[in-house]
């Protein structure tokens, strides 16, 4: 009953890497410009992308690259397990800026709706029609031990037949994302030690 990793994808330092292969590079320092170039390059074609906050943009793009490049159908009950450090800080600061000035007090519903980190789970679930288990956790750093334990518990307790695990961190122009799928059919070792080598 050991679970293994299928494919994995990383977005960091201006690069998109899928299973050790660099698929795209862009030196653009501005996060918004960078993530838009990734979105265009991989022809994700999901206009709602433009309405999203930075966390949802990063999450939907990395999940799409991984899932669209994986063979076979996506399990209906694939669970989503997302984590990061900064929650949805950019859109939080944006919303905060609209309520600080009493004379220019116009909080935006379109911003406010993104001021919860788990909205990223909702966006992925909608795009891939996943009526499945999903949860968003916060740690100071990517926590491979927790990811392994919780993903295994979802599978072993029959809550899901596979799990999409991710670290999706974005804070202004600093971003770092790592996603992988794990299931009993995965071929690559799913352990704390191995995950550490993949995200190094």
């Amino acid at each position: 009953m050991n679970n293994g990793i299928h494919h994995y994808c990383r977005i960091s330092n201006g690069q998109v890497i899928l299973d050790d292969k660099v698929l795209f590079t862009n030196e653009e320092k501005n996060f918004d410009g960078f993530i838009k170039s990734v979105y265009k390059h991989f022809e994700i074609d999901y206009p709602k992308f433009y309405k999203m906050d930075p966390l949802c943009k990063l999450s939907i793009v990395i999940a799409s690259i991984l899932l669209d490049n994986s063979e076979g159908a996506i399990e209906d009950d694939m669970a989503l397990l997302l984590s990061n450090k900064s929650s949805c800080i950019d859109v939080d600061l944006k919303h905060q800026s609209t309520i600080e000035d009493k004379d220019d007090y116009y909080p935006s519903p379109a911003n406010f709706v993104y001021t919860l980190p788990n909205i990223a789970l909702g966006e992925i679930s909608i795009k891939y029609k996943l009526r499945s288990e999903n949860s968003f956790f916060i740690f100071e750093d990517f926590n491979p031990e927790f990811m392994v334990d919780y993903a295994n518990s979802l599978i072993h307790l029959n809550k899901a037949s596979s799990v999409l695990c991710a670290w999706v961190e974005v804070n202004k122009d600093n971003y770092n994302a790592f996603v992988y799928k794990v299931s009993p059919n995965g071929k690559t070792e799913h352990s704390k030690e191995h995950l550490k080598t993949l995200i190094e």
């Binding site: 989503l80 679930s125 909608i126 009526r131 499945s132 288990e133």
Partner: peptide
Amino acid sequence: SSINDANHISGPSRTGEG
């Protein structure tokens, strides 16, 4: 159990599916 609606980010599902 915790099942997502996969329907809308702020509006609850009309059918209560999740």
